[in-house]
Write a protein that binds this DNA or RNA. Sequence first.
DNA 1: TTTTATGCAAAGTATTTGCACGGGA
DNA 2: TCCCGTGCAAATACTTTGCATAAAA
Lengths: 144, 144
Amino acid sequence: MAEAEYWLQHLQSNGFRPTAPRKAVVEIITSSRRVLNPMEVFDLARVHYPKLGLVTVYRTIEKLEKLGLLQRVHLPTGCQGYVAAYDRHQHLLICQKCGSVEYFGGDQETLENLLTDVEKKSGYRVREHWLQLFGECADCRELS
Amino acid sequence: MAEAEYWLQHLQSNGFRPTAPRKAVVEIITSSRRVLNPMEVFDLARVHYPKLGLVTVYRTIEKLEKLGLLQRVHLPTGCQGYVAAYDRHQHLLICQKCGSVEYFGGDQETLENLLTDVEKKSGYRVREHWLQLFGECADCRELS
DNA sequence: TTTTATGCAAAGTATTTGCACGGGA
DNA sequence: TCCCGTGCAAATACTTTGCATAAAA
C-alpha cells in the first residue's frame, strides 16, 4: 500500500487532510489494475469504510485529478473511468477482455516522426496527443 | 449537399424513412467542420426545421452511428461529440482554437511499426487503436 | 478552537422511454 | 390503410450544490 501512502502525503502537502474516507478511496484506486468509474470506486471502497458517501468519491476523484495523480480515461463504453496517472499522456494499453490497463512507453522517436509527418502534411501545429490501444493482454491470451 | 443526400439514401436503403426531421439533422452534421453534440445539432437543425424535437436528434444520431456514417468523438471537454465518419479509426486532428476536425491518413507503416513494437514489449495483442491529435489548424495559426 | 471535510438531501443536467398522434409508403 | 416516426411528457441516470454536523489541525 505504499502508493496509497504516497498519494495521501501528496494530498496533505497540498493542504488537504488525509481523512478516512479519502484513504478508502485512494486505496481502492491505487490497488486497481482496471479503469474504475465513480460508482465502482464507491462500491469497492464502501466495503472498507461503510459510512462513505458517493459525493465524497466524486470530490476526492476531482482533487486527485487536479493533483495529477489520477487520470480520466475515455473508453468506447464510457468516459468516466479513472486510472492512476503514471504519465501525462494517454498512452494506454487496455485489455478488452479483463479490462486491465497499463501504460506503454513505446518508441518515442517513432511517435514523434509520425507527429512531425502529420504536421507537415496538414499544416497543423500539434500540441497534445492521445494514443490508446485496445486488445488482449498476455494473461487473457494464455487463457483462450 | 451531396453528402446529406447520400446519407439519406443510406438510411432509406436500410429501411428507415428519409423524413424532414432526419433531413434537417443530417444536413447540419454533414455540413459541419466541427464536432457537434446532440444539443448543438438540435439548435442548428431547428433553425431550418422548427418543429424538431431533441429526442429525434438523439434517435437519428443513434441510427447514423450504427450505420457507420457518424462517429462519436471523445474530447477532453466531453464525450458526446459526433463527426462524419470517413474512416473506421479515430485518427483525428482537432483544432483547440476553432474546434475543426479532420481525419489524417498519416504514415500507415510508421504506426504499424509502433503497434508491433508495443505488442512485442507488452505481450498484448492489439486489436484496435485510437489516435487523436490536438493543436492548431493552419487557419488559426495564420490568424495568431 | 478554527477550519476543512463529510454525508444527506435537493437541485441540476443529460439521456432514455412510453405513448398517442401524424405523415410517408 | 398500415406502419414507422415524431414530439411531448415522464422517467431514469449521473453529477453537482447547499447545508448542518463531524472530524482534523
